[in-house]
Design a protein around this nucleic acid. Sequence first.
DNA 1: GTGGCTGCAAAAAGTTTGCAAGAGG
DNA 2: CCTCTTGCAAACTTTTTGCAGCCAC
Lengths: 166, 166
Amino acid sequence: MKSAKPIQNDINRESEEIKQLVSKFRSLNIQITPQRLVIASALTGTEKHLSVEDIHQIVRKKNSKIGLATVYRTLNLLKGKGLIEEHRFNDEFSRYELHTESHHDHLICIECETVIEFDQPVIEHLQDLAAAEKNFTIVSHRLQIYGICENCATANKKREKNPISP
Amino acid sequence: MKSAKPIQNDINRESEEIKQLVSKFRSLNIQITPQRLVIASALTGTEKHLSVEDIHQIVRKKNSKIGLATVYRTLNLLKGKGLIEEHRFNDEFSRYELHTESHHDHLICIECETVIEFDQPVIEHLQDLAAAEKNFTIVSHRLQIYGICENCATANKKREKNPISP
DNA sequence: GTGGCTGCAAAAAGTTTGCAAGAGG
DNA sequence: CCTCTTGCAAACTTTTTGCAGCCAC
């Protein structure tokens, strides 16, 4: 037989992710429940930074009875175990993403709210220097840059050339 | 006569600050009210990063009838006019400080919550580079470093040497 | 005088908690 | 089985809003 159908691949990917989550949970001493697996897989299934409400919506499509409180409790648990990271952009509510080995920072577009991740090891090094100067021991850090992304900048230029209202 | 008494100096400093605020308000087209002056002078009178509740407490000592809503409204107004800056450390509530010409970032102690300001122009330059690489136009940024300050580190070491409970 | 500001209370929005019933190991 | 988790609703926290009266200009 040849390769499976696309839909089958999706199911395979998903069940593969669930398997990995189960072993991750075991190794971290997290009790396994369907709710927790569905919530965690909402984050493994995307590269976006999801709000609690986003996650609640996604999760309800698979198990319509999951309550918002369970989503909050689970996210706090996973955060405590280091599986996911919490962010606050633009002083809004919390957003979550999977924790990855390599630390990265964020460029946030103030027009379309897109989040671009970037990595600047030299900046990290300079932070260490700045902290050392004040005898400060770094535990973690957060760097957020706000501005206009490439797409919005291009769109803005077009609008200037072809103004709808003069 | 010689120099004025210390208490008099305090009053002088304060009335001097009020005078400066009044002219600042005038130049920014902010209507002058006693409430607004008292709220703004709570921030000119300190280098700390005050929460809304902090400011409300301070302000009530001078004018006990000022409502929390007025504090919020005034802070939003002053923020909009660029007179003050809003920060969110450790995903808590908002804190405010006076806006200064030179941008600085923050070291936040996760034990005693002290905030130390620092300035690293080279980091700013590297941010520009990182943004340029993604064709991103920077509008503003926020860098927060969390860790242990010198005082707490020293205190922790002492505690290790002289443990109260073995 | 009158439009903007204030105080109060009520509402919003995001998040946490108490509790009885249910599920995991 | 016994503990930990869940769903629901209610509570809590921070911030915003509606409105009548008041104040700055």
